[in-house]
Design a protein around this nucleic acid. Structure first.
Length: 245
DNA sequence: TGTATGACGATAT
DNA sequence: CATATCGCCATAC
């Protein structure tokens, strides 16, 4: 009985599927423990498939977390309007810590609690200058030059984010270019990961980082790559992309 | 310490 | 051109 871990599953997919196709089952292990098996589909399986899954996909309900004890509000937050929906911004004395497109204030508070470790409190009267700068950045694609609080971000990712802040509107960089900028030419993938975890999208312009093959790469805000493309177009950056796709 | 996980890149098919 | 494969790397657990 053959066994593979998740890495082998990822890197030898085809070989494994061929093996399964020949009739030999493969056990998948994770952290050393068997969690699944790959087996060849039987005729009955195929029949079941066409009968049940030709026009729909199974979905599952979401789990809800129980309420947690209140924390002594360390941060505050405000909401600002954007063309693509309401944006919530959590901030502390050192500047914004997190930006999100939560569906409601309550949802944002839960998300912030999880990410920041301490739930922010709605600010009835946000600092006027902060609010103005944030809105200007989001609505007008202006650089956000104010301070940001990246104290919760690990070192490499923080370096990436700081590099992103130096990309002017209307320009783009590739993930690899950012990696080289940081002196780690082979860390393109890690740069992508850092972008994906950017706690301050829009304020820190991770949408200006694209793939070296001319594609746009991903985007974590709701709206995904479509929104990324929209932002770049509004900034006039699409024209200078190497290719188009 | 080892294992798992990606907003990547270069290359092969 | 699209997909697959595999190397790379920082992080989270």
């Amino acid at each position: 009985m053959k066994m593979v871990n998740t890495v082998e599953l990822k890197n030898r997919t085809n070989a494994l599927l061929r093996q399964v196709g020949r009739g030999e089952a493969v056990i998948v292990t994770r952290r050393g423990k068997p969690v699944a098996a790959l087996t060849r589909l039987t005729d009955a399986d195929l029949e079941e498939f066409v009968l049940r899954y030709t026009s729909r996909v199974a979905a599952d309900g979401g789990a809800t977390a129980p309420g947690q004890p209140e924390a002594p509000s360390k941060y505050r937050y405000m909401s600002v309007p954007a063309p693509f929906g309401t944006i919530f911004v959590a901030y502390g004395p050192n500047g914004p810590l997190m930006v999100s497109q939560a569906n409601s204030p309550a949802a944002f508070e839960r998300e912030a609690e999880r990410v920041l470790g301490s739930g922010p409190v709605a600010d009835p009267e946000p600092p006027a200058d902060l609010r103005a700068e944030v809105m200007h950045a989001i609505r007008d694609h202006a650089p956000y030059r104010g301070p940001v609080d990246l104290s919760l971000v690990p070192p490499f990712e923080r370096a990436v984010l700081q590099a992103l802040r130096r990309i002017p509107p209307g320009q783009v960089r590739t993930y690899g270019e950012i990696a080289r900028t940081l002196g780690k030419p082979s860390a393109a993938r890690a740069v992508g990961t850092a972008c994906a975890r950017n706690p301050l999208p829009l304020l820190i312009p991770c949408h200006r980082v694209v793939r070296s093959d001319g594609k746009l790469g991903g985007y974590s805000l709701r709206g995904g790559v479509a929104l990324k493309r929209q932002l770049l177009e509004a900034e006039g950056a699409l024209a200078l992309l190497p290719l188009g796709r």
